[in-house]
Amino acid sequence: MAAAAAAGAGPEMVRGQVFDVGPRYTNLSYIGEGAYGMVCSAYDNVNKVRVAIKKISPFEHQTYCQRTLREIKILLRFRHENIIGINDIIRAPTIEQMKDVYIVQDLMETDLYKLLKTQHLSNDHICYFLYQILRGLKYIHSANVLHRDLKPSNLLLNTTCDLKICDFGLARVADPDHDHTGFLTEYVATRWYRAPEIMLNSKGYTKSIDIWSVGCILAEMLSNRPIFPGKHYLDQLNHILGILGSPSQEDLNCIINLKARNYLLSLPHKNKVPWNRLFPNADSKALDLLDKMLTFNPHKRIEVEQALAHPYLEQYYDPSDEPIAEAPFKFDMELDDLPKEKLKELIFEETARFQPGYRS
């Protein structure tokens, strides 16, 4: 834990890192770190609560700039109880001085990944967590956004079992017609939660990839272990087919990539493993919904509104309290091709509203 900075004593240090967030945020305490930044909790002297502050230093890398800009653009436009918001952003007053960006968010005690390492969940908890994931996802999908990296560590939890989806750095506007060349190379989302079509096709992607990830998360809540822990690309596919069985001819016809289709045709026939054999203690309604989410063919996979209306979630289902976005989200430009200098300018502009004396 960093010592509390005395008023006016300059930035606090946390594990050798400068955290320049005073005077409003003090009493910093280390939480963890990701690929390009550290997260601390801090005391907000204005709202009198502890908050989470993520320090991001992305400006050396085009990919990190892209992810940072995506996350900020999306989260500043989203407003939903099951999606983490941005409360404040701290950065230098000029673009030349801006080396880091500090993002202030609600402090959540833990995440689903940490929880599943230590606790076996009751059916009631599984049901409530799944409902909140789908409630947040309904809003995301209504904005025409794909999260693309749903996994237990991106689901934040607090002691009252509130759940918030975080990390929109890989999110995209849904565009089933656009052929994202190089899709697989830039697709760094965790393999275990990846839909089979991501490994088999490169053309376009749809909201059904997020539903697949939610199915993987439900299976993990039922058993405290990942359902498809593939060691590499082909191993991942083999794990999936080992449980779902061989795809039907109709399902194979959806695979545009001939090499991928021929690979699947070359494999020995596998039978589907019954879900109640894998999860003998699970609620039968939970397994019915799991089956509809972990469907090989993305066109037959359940959609988020149908999933919310499934009998497993009937005690929570309330369409009048499951809000959607006001308007579909649009990125003005494809960020993939922009140089990091341009992305830095866009991050600077996007964060201006939090600067003292800002006038829109």
Rank of each mutant, 00 (worst) to 15 (best):
R77N: 10
N47G: 08
G230K: 11
E250W: 15
A2K: 15
D251W: 05
L75G: 13
H125K: 05
R24K: 13
G32K: 09
F129V: 12
N87C: 15
C166S: 00
I84H: 04
I256H: 06
Y317H: 12
F296T: 05
K272L: 08
M38P: 02
F228Y: 00
E350R: 15
L267K: 14
T159F: 07
Q62W: 10
M221V: 07
I126N: 05
G16I: 15
A171G: 07
L76C: 13
H180G: 06
Q119G: 08
D288R: 10
D251Q: 09
M13I: 00
K285N: 00
A307F: 11
L258N: 09
S202Y: 04
V46A: 12
Q236I: 03
S122Y: 09
T26E: 07
L264K: 10
A35Y: 06
K114Y: 03
P328M: 08
F59A: 14
H180P: 04
V14C: 07
D288M: 12
F78V: 03
F354A: 10
L156G: 01
Q249G: 11
N253G: 08
R277H: 12
A352G: 12
L244T: 14
Q355F: 15
H147F: 10
E349K: 02
P274N: 13
I243F: 01
P176L: 03
L252C: 09
R359G: 00
R353H: 11
N281H: 07
H80D: 12
A195L: 05
G34N: 07
W192S: 02
D106R: 13
N253M: 05
Q355T: 15
W275Q: 05
S248A: 03
P356H: 02
D124K: 11
L69F: 13
N158R: 06
T295Y: 11
A7L: 04
W192H: 03
Y30V: 14
T295C: 10
F331I: 00
F19S: 01
I302Y: 09
Q17T: 12
R15E: 09
P226K: 14
L218I: 06
H120E: 09
I56P: 09
A219F: 02
S202L: 02
Y102M: 08
A52D: 00
S360A: 01
A189R: 02
L76T: 15
P268K: 11
M13G: 01
V145D: 07
H178I: 08
C161M: 06
P93A: 14
I89K: 10
L308Q: 04
I126T: 10
V173Y: 09
A282S: 02
R261E: 04
W192A: 02
C40D: 15
L290A: 04
A2P: 05
I211T: 05
D210C: 04
G182E: 02
E197H: 04
D20V: 02
R70P: 08
N271G: 13
F78L: 01
Y113L: 10
F59M: 14
E197Q: 02
I86W: 05
R191F: 08
Y131K: 15
Y113M: 09
F279V: 03
L134H: 07
K138I: 00
F19I: 00
L112V: 10
A352T: 04
R24P: 11
A4P: 15
G10F: 08
G230T: 14
Q236E: 06
I95N: 00
L155F: 05
I198S: 05
A327K: 13
G8R: 07
G16F: 13
M199I: 00
L112P: 02
M199S: 05
E71T: 12
Y358L: 06
L146A: 05
Y187S: 02
N253C: 10
L28T: 10
A195H: 08
I324A: 15
L130P: 01
L308D: 05
T159W: 05
I198M: 04
Y102G: 12
E71F: 07
K285L: 06
A325D: 15
I95E: 08
K207N: 05
I86E: 13
G34H: 14
M98L: 02
I165L: 04
G169A: 02
I255V: 11
N276D: 03
L237F: 07
H80Q: 01
H147T: 08
A325P: 14
F129N: 12
L241T: 10
I240N: 02
K117Y: 12
T181P: 04
Q132R: 04
I126W: 05
L134N: 04
E350Y: 15
E314M: 15
P229K: 05
D318S: 14
E345Y: 15
E33R: 10
K73E: 02
L264C: 11
S223I: 12
P229W: 05
Y205F: 00
K259G: 08
R79C: 09
R359V: 08
I90D: 14
F348P: 07
N158T: 03
P23Y: 15
L287P: 02
Y30G: 13
V214S: 06
R70K: 04
L28W: 05
G32E: 10
L156M: 02
I103G: 08
A92L: 13
T118D: 11
L200S: 02
D318W: 14
G169V: 01
C166Y: 00
G182N: 07
E341N: 14
T351L: 09
R148V: 02
S320H: 14
L170F: 09
E322G: 12
T26F: 07
L241K: 07
I72E: 06
I89V: 05
D20Q: 12
Q66F: 10
N257D: 03
G245H: 03
E314G: 13
L116V: 13
F228E: 07
E303K: 02
K48M: 01
S248T: 02
Q236F: 03
T110S: 00
R91T: 15
C40N: 15
K114R: 01
G37N: 02
L244A: 10
G357K: 08
N262T: 12
V14H: 07
P280L: 05
R50L: 09
L130K: 06
N45G: 09
C40W: 13
N82C: 07
D162I: 14
A189H: 05
N281F: 11
L287V: 14
Y30Q: 08
K342E: 04
G357A: 05
P196F: 04
T206G: 10
I243Y: 14
E322P: 15
D162G: 10
Y316Q: 11
A174K: 11
V18H: 13
V39W: 04
M98S: 14
Y263A: 11
V49R: 08
A9W: 15
F129L: 00
I95P: 14
E33H: 12
S284Y: 13
L200K: 02
P323F: 15
G85H: 14
R15G: 04
D321S: 14
E186G: 06
L163E: 08
P298N: 13
K48W: 10
Y128F: 00
L170G: 08
K344Q: 14
R353V: 05
G34S: 10
L265T: 11
I83H: 08
R70G: 07
A42G: 13
A325H: 15
T118W: 11
T351D: 13
P226F: 07
K164Q: 05
H232Y: 08
Y312A: 12
Y358T: 10
G169N: 15
L222W: 12
I198D: 07
Q249W: 12
T94M: 10
V21C: 07
M98P: 10
P152Q: 02
K138M: 10
L343C: 13
A189Y: 06
M108Y: 10
G169S: 04
H125N: 00
A7Q: 03
E345C: 15
I198H: 06
A189D: 05
F329H: 15
D321F: 13
P280I: 10
L170I: 09
F168I: 00
E12F: 15
I211F: 00
T26V: 08
R50D: 12
A6I: 10
Y113V: 07
S41K: 11
A171N: 08
P311Q: 14
L313C: 15
I103S: 05
M108W: 12
E109G: 11
S122C: 03
A189K: 03
N123D: 07
K330I: 11
K73P: 02
L69A: 11
G215C: 03
V145M: 02
L338H: 14
A143S: 03
Q105A: 09
D210L: 02
I198W: 03
I217G: 03
E220Q: 06
T63M: 10
P247W: 03
S360M: 03
N47S: 04
D44T: 13
P298E: 15
T159I: 05
N297P: 09
S320D: 09
P93S: 05
E186R: 04
Y36A: 10
I89S: 13
G16R: 01
C216D: 04
T351Y: 15
W275Y: 08
L107Q: 01
K99M: 01
Y312I: 08
P226I: 07
I53M: 02
P274W: 11
K54H: 09
P298R: 04
F78Q: 07
P311A: 14
K292V: 13
K114A: 07
E322F: 15
W192L: 00
S360R: 05
S223H: 11
F168W: 03
Y263G: 10
N82E: 07
L156K: 03
A327Y: 15
I165F: 00
L287A: 10
